[in-house]
Simulated assay, not measured.
Amino acid sequence: MDRAATDDGSAILAALGAAIREHRTAAGLTQAQLAERAGIGRPHLNHIEGGRKSPTVVVLVHLARGLGVDPAALLKTQTVSKATR
């Protein structure tokens, strides 16, 4: 994988993590509460929100369900849109 692809990947993970965090705080949930709803550990959620870990599709769907949003809503960010153009 070249450096540009890695940088794009990092930007996508950061945008995804920020979107999850924004939806979580808007829902009035703590990391522990969302992690429990999604069936993952709070440290794992912390790494996802920080853009340091990539969630599997299954975990992404569980997070979306825990937030009461469509999984696509978590992927709709300006950074992701720019990366896919």
Rank of each mutant, 00 (worst) to 15 (best):
I40V: 15
R42H: 02
T6I: 09
R52F: 06
G50V: 06
D2Y: 10
T25A: 12
H47F: 13
A18K: 10
R52L: 11
L74E: 11
Q33N: 06
V59Y: 01
Q33G: 05
R65F: 00
A5N: 12
V80C: 10
H47D: 14
V59G: 07
I12N: 09
A27Y: 00
D70W: 02
A14C: 09
L75D: 01
R65S: 00
A83L: 09
R85T: 10
N46T: 13
V57F: 11
G50F: 11
V61Y: 09
I48F: 00
P71R: 05
K82E: 15
L34G: 08
P55E: 05
G41D: 04
L29Q: 14
L67K: 00
A64Q: 00
A64K: 02
L63A: 01
T30I: 15
A73G: 05
R3D: 00
R52H: 11
A26D: 08
A27K: 10
A19G: 07
T30M: 15
D70A: 10
G68S: 03
I48C: 05
S54P: 02
V59N: 10
V58S: 04
A11G: 13
G9P: 02
L74M: 12
V69S: 03
H23W: 13
L60N: 03
P71S: 03
G17R: 08
E49V: 05
L75T: 08
A32E: 12
G66V: 01
V57W: 07
R52Y: 10
T6H: 04
H44P: 00
G28T: 07
H44M: 13
T56L: 10
L63D: 02
A72I: 14
A18N: 13
E22C: 06
Q78L: 03
G28H: 07
A32M: 02
D8L: 10
T79Q: 14
R52W: 04
A83K: 04
G51S: 06
G66K: 00
R37F: 01
G50E: 12
R85Q: 11
A73V: 04
R24N: 10
R21T: 15
A11P: 09
D7M: 04
K76D: 14
L75S: 14
A35R: 08
N46D: 08
G9L: 04
A38F: 04
A83W: 11
S10T: 07
T84E: 14
A35V: 03
V61Q: 14
K76E: 14
D2N: 09
A14L: 13
G17P: 09
L67H: 01
